[in-house]
Amino acid sequence: MSLAKHWRLQQQRYRLIGVQCEDCGAKLLPRRLVCPQCKSHNLQPYSFKGQGMVYSHTVVYDAPSGYDGYVPYPAALVRLDEGPLVATQLTDVDIDEPYIGMPVEMVTRRLREHGESGMIVYGYKFRPKLKD
């Protein structure tokens, strides 16, 4: 179990911090060193609002180790209002509820824990929008 690999991604995972291209304005999540649209290297941190819509969704039944205690769980690609897609689990939702176009919002939840004595990894998930 690596502690540092989770620690160094905290800001992205807790607060959806990506980058904005200072040259072409593209908003990118996750962060990159080179803008895929204009190849600029001038990218500055940008905090995403955490609102979006389901682009596609699934329900995981056969899960990788560390996630098997949560099955079945819904996951999705969410199209953020600012443009990027984000891969995420959906939470606070029954497995048959998600649909393409469902309005969702970011919350911070447990992504996994490394056993009884290991680190708890927190990060973003998305849930059906609580309030318009």
């Binding site: 996750p30 560390g66 769980y73 689990q89 992504l111």
Partner: peptide
Amino acid sequence: EEYEAIHGLS
């Protein structure tokens, strides 16, 4: 790994 697998995506 950092943006897909960590979210439990098989």
